[in-house]
């Protein structure tokens, strides 16, 4: 499917989104994606998580290639 990104959500983020997998229309970069996600799922604004594009963790804003797989990775504390 063209112009789509595939979201994989983990832990508390999956809980707040209500799914572990999700398809979204393509966003130009990671900041734009976060804005889209927060608008769609307001509960995400109070959860910290890291982002991986095509299984590589990113820091700062990064461009998102078409058909990318984006993982939303919250920290876990339990032991």
């Amino acid at each position: 499917m063209p112009n789509t990104i595939h979201i994989k959500a983990f832990g508390m983020v999956a809980e707040r989104i209500g799914a572990t997998d999700l398809e979204l229309a393509h966003c130009l970069d990671s900041e734009a994606l976060l804005e889209t996600l927060r608008a769609k799922f307001p509960e995400l604004t109070t959860t910290k998580f890291s982002l991986a594009i095509n299984k590589k963790l990113i820091s700062g804003n990064q461009e998102i290639p078409e058909n990318a797989e984006i993982a939303l990775l919250p920290p876990f504390s339990g032991g």
Binding site: G11, P75, F76
Partner: peptide, 9 residues
Amino acid sequence: GAIYQHEGQ
């Protein structure tokens, strides 16, 4: 290593 409900890292 850490866990949350049904997941671990």
